[in-house]
Design a protein around this nucleic acid. Structure first.
Lengths: 350, 350
DNA sequence: CGCTACATTTGAAACGATCCAACGCCGACG
DNA sequence: CGTCGGCGTTGGATCGTTTCAAATGTAGCG
């Protein structure tokens, strides 16, 4: 038998063709399952494919066909379990549709995001799913991706969008309704002095959640106090640190709607440190329902966003757009579901 | 001015060349920063590139140059924060080296892993970083990736490896030493009845950690009891459920080395439910140092594995391999670091 | 037997970039 | 005046696949 040459070249269509005495065209037809080829020929070719251990070169095919079989996924924080779940959902749905995921992580850095987008676009993805870094503007994103490749925005809006927002689709969470539900739940429990805790005022999701909170308060005729709106970084650590600001002035709140679960978990910690017992002396709600929230002490009342399902949905929206590039841009607002656990009891001082 | 045609074609090298009256070859030279081209020509070409909003087609270039600018990353559980961090580290290092990450998630399913590997390989990645699904065998993985493309195994070994293990590099965690350190820490705290809790006996990492635990016990002359080795699924929920088995027979342990943090957190929960106060009546250690462990009640003594750093390291090992394909296969065992927190006090019954 | 119809197969031109050998030009040198 | 060397530039082949018009072969039919 012939020894394989020192540098094992990749085996191509031509090798197969030569190996069983047909033309490249025929082999190509076999590969693509065309009904044109004779059954016997097909078998010979398929045997040869196996024998030579052929692997299809999809890039070459994509080049010729002017198609793409990849989708870029660019996230603002892959290390965050919420986005990790989302990515898993995206990859799952793309995989079953025969696409491959090009991953990029901006880590909330706009400049890194630009670099990542630029580099991914050079690989010619069929579309892009982007959860933008905080503060990203429409012009900069459009400059990086161009107007040609379909873009699906997840989770956040772009700033300075102007009239350009017709150029992309959006999948957003129903932040406003979610925060309203949480607030209504606390109101129903009997709370009247309810704070809104955490998040940055200039992030669109924080604004929306804050708006939902105010909707509920206003509808119930409840008041707000200025020191009941405390901004923090959306991290556990900063939330724990800022806890005291809720109690800086009287009257102190008896409950808090938190920007997200990380902040809520931090608040639990901060309350503990002040000698308060969250779930008994003080009610707390979160947002996201990260895995941890079911196991915290006390387990956290929060809003489930089903990130994996969102990921699948995002992928499907984008694939639908690839299928019909001319359809008008759409915005889908995904519902969120209130999950009541033990962190949101009625007020204790009644 | 000329209206753009209805279907806006992608702009190519030839468009640029035609647009400023040079040949494609010259434009290519400009793109690749060759010193051969005249400064004035270069400027004209660069202006035209900007004017037409050219974007480089890296796949075409890769086809011609027989190179690759992507690396496949296939994980057994992307939704797990440990692997999400790892992925972020990989992507970061690959990105700065000019590579793009092709993501795949097997979700611990071997068949899905085979499908994912197959599909990714068709895109011609320069190499593969694989954290295999549990139970993956060397033959099946080799069949999917072929022997041509460099493979780096992370976190787990392949089964039925035989002599083939010379074909890939490995980056592993020092499981054995880590578990030994945890056990030694508990011994130093004065514990003598120490359990090993959680994990599946047939997973290589569980075996290694169990071995480290036994190393420490034996060195200290401490005994093991059969019911102190409790197997669980590596999840919080199952760990909580199985807690009682630790106390099924006397003598009960006063401390437990857990397979990982998820299991340890579940054990904390299970202990609570039995009326025990972990961190006071019972000592617990974990493994991984996931974000949550610093904030649990009590904060968890555990082994930090620095997943993001591991991700960067994996990427760099693979890139080094690309650079020198002939170098002998290497195995790197990454150290882990004991982080002592409040979950591992001395025994209370002394 | 000549002709059409049909079933297969194929040659060659793409896709968008790279690369190499060759070319034109110009001043210098013998 | 002829030719040599360098500098910039370029034509055309090439990477591995697809595609389409055209070629080939085979059979049926009048």
């Amino acid at each position: 038998m012939s020894a394989s040459p020192p540098t094992t070249r990749k085996v191509t269509l031509s090798d197969i063709a030569a190996g069983c005495g047909v033309s490249r065209a025929t082999v190509s037809l076999v590969l693509r399952g065309s009904p044109l080829v004779n059954a016997r020929t097909r078998e010979r070719v398929e045997a040869e494919l196996r024998r030579q251990n052929y692997v299809y070169n999809r890039s070459a095919a994509n080049l010729r066909r002017r198609t793409s079989s990849s989708i870029a996924l660019v996230l603002n924080d892959l290390a965050n379990p919420f986005f990790a779940e989302f990515a898993a959902g995206v990859d799952e749905a793309l995989g079953t549709a025969g696409y491959v995921t090009l991953l990029g992580n901006s880590g909330e850095s706009r400049t890194r995001q630009q670099a990542v987008l630029g580099s991914l676009v050079e690989h010619g993805p069929g579309g892009i799913i982007l959860s933008p870094a905080e503060g990203s503007t429409a012009p900069e994103v459009l400059a990086a991706v161009g107007a040609q490749v379909p873009l699906l925005l997840f989770n956040r809006e772009l700033e300075e969008a102007g009239a350009q927002d017709a150029h992309w689709d959006r999948l957003l969470l129903d932040n406003r309704t979610g925060a309203r539900l949480a607030t209504e739940h606390l109101l129903a429990q009997g709370h009247r002095r309810i704070a809104f805790f955490g998040g940055h005022g200039d992030s669109s999701s924080a604004q929306q959640r804050y708006a939902g909170y105010r909707d509920a308060l206003r509808a119930a005729g409840a008041k707000e106090a200025a020191h009941w709106r405390v901004e923090t970084a959306p991290t556990r650590l900063d939330a724990a640190r800022q806890t005291e600001r809720l109690f800086a002035r009287a009257p102190a709140p008896t409950a808090a709607v938190c920007y997200n679960d990380a902040v809520a978990l931090g608040l639990l910690l901060g309350l503990h440190q002040r000698g308060l017992r969250p779930g008994r002396d003080f009610a707390v709600t979160g947002f996201d329902d990260i895995a941890e929230s079911a196991f915290s002490t006390p387990p956290l009342t929060t809003l489930a966003t089903a990130p994996r399902e969102r990921g699948r949905q995002a992928a499907e929206l984008l694939l639908a757009r690839l299928h019909d590039p001319q359809a008008p841009a759409q915005t889908v607002v995904a519902p969120v579901r209130l999950v009541v656990r033990e962190s949101s009891p009625p007020p204790s001082d009644r």
